[in-house]
Design a protein around this nucleic acid. Structure first.
Length: 351
DNA sequence: AAGTCGGGGTG
DNA sequence: CACCCAGACTT
């Protein structure tokens, strides 16, 4: 048997049962592919079920509000995906008469769909012959063929794409694509791959040379930075009712279009009693305020930045403060808004 | 080509 | 802790 036959035979016996594998509906396959971008199957599983239950088709998604889509996405990360998926639903309505496009060259026009997702949808939903290249595939092919160019370079990807066009089962590109990703996830793992049970062992350069740990070769290095967030929980009492200022993040930064609190950010840790007091004083325009409490530091780790956040409760007496992109709400209402994990974590400790 | 965008699992 | 996950978009 050749590469493709060995792979597909293994897949038919060992594949996981996953909800998006029971359908050829391009809409459902699309949603699964976006959710799974840079996201493990286990993490995305429940999100897929919830999302497709609330939005079973393009129309229901297109008729929603972006904020509801973001709320369904809350906790999953990379929220650009949720905004793009919403935008793409409008594209399907307006540019494709509400029908999900059936060709790679149209599919890739949709916002948030790049070469990987277009190949996945075109092959799985429409049996078009486009090989997928994701992190799993890069690892599997680079090990088997001993690819010496960094796989995160254009050259490395093109070399792997050329190999895949030779390997892919042209009658069953859908099965081939899912199989090569599945074996990357279940057998050819980043650390200590299970070469003993791998059906492609006899074909594998890295296994023969005992160099599985040396592949894939990567060039890019991850940069890291620290950010210091001082959140102001500005509480305003009106009779018996308490209100709090909620802030919508509108800039091109993390958590765009999600909600947090008025924020003072610095590049290094600061003394709350000095610098911060003057900042708060300026922000509140010298009106009377009382600092009630200051939380301990919440460390929030992202892929490329570390956030150190503290939450400062402030009570003010004056009504109707004007703060940019802010609105007043009752604290119990915050959970109706899409909020980042950091805010969610804090609110859990505050109750 | 490099930088940016989250959160969580894994060793 | 470092690495990486069914990547895409912007600069």
């Amino acid at each position: 048997m050749n590469f493709s036959e060995l792979l597909i035979q293994w897949y038919k016996k060992n594949q996981r049962k996953l909800p998006w594998r029971n359908t050829r509906n391009p809409y459902l396959i699309w949603i699964s592919e976006i959710i799974l971008q840079q996201t493990r199957v286990n993490q995305g599983f429940e999100y897929y079920l919830r999302f497709t239950e609330r939005f079973p088709d393009v129309i229901s998604l297109a008729n929603a509000k972006e904020e509801e889509v973001l709320r369904l996405w809350q906790g999953l990360g990379y929220y650009t995906r949720a905004r793009n998926i919403y935008h793409a639903a409008q594209q399907i309505i307006h540019d494709f008469n509400g029908v999900f496009p059936a060709d790679y060259n149209d599919i890739i026009k949709l916002k948030g769909i790049g070469s990987y997702s277009a190949s996945a949808i075109a092959s799985i939903a429409f049996k078009q012959c486009y090989p997928v290249i994701d992190g799993n595939v890069l690892r599997v092919i680079s090990r088997i063929y001993g690819i010496s160019i960094p796989v995160d370079s254009a050259k490395g990807k093109n070399e792997i794409k050329a190999i895949l066009y030779e390997l892919i089962d042209k009658q069953n590109p859908d099965i081939f694509n899912q199989a090569i990703m599945e074996i990357g996830a279940l057998v050819c793992s980043p650390k200590s791959p299970q070469c003993e049970i791998c059906p492609l062992q006899a074909l594998c350069f890295a296994y023969a040379e005992k160099k599985t740990a040396d592949f894939p070769i990567k060039g890019k290095k991850i940069s890291q930075r620290s950010r210091y967030f001082y959140y102001l929980l500005i509480i305003q009492k009106q009779g018996e009712e308490k209100y709090i200022y909620l802030h919508k993040r509108t800039k091109n930064d993390i958590w765009k279009n999600m909600y947090d609190f008025p924020l003072i950010e610095t590049e290094s840790e600061i003394n709350i009693n000095e610098y911060l007091l003057s900042e708060i004083d300026a922000l509140l325009k010298s009106y009377d305020f009382v600092i009630q409490s200051v939380s301990p530091t919440f460390k929030h780790q992202l892929t490329h930045q570390t956030i150190y956040a503290r939450f400062i409760k402030i009570e003010i007496s004056l009504p109707n403060l004007i703060l940019k992109d802010c609105s007043l709400t009752i604290p119990g209402n915050i959970n109706n808004y899409p909020i980042p994990k950091l805010i969610d974590n804090y609110l859990k400790t505050d109750k």
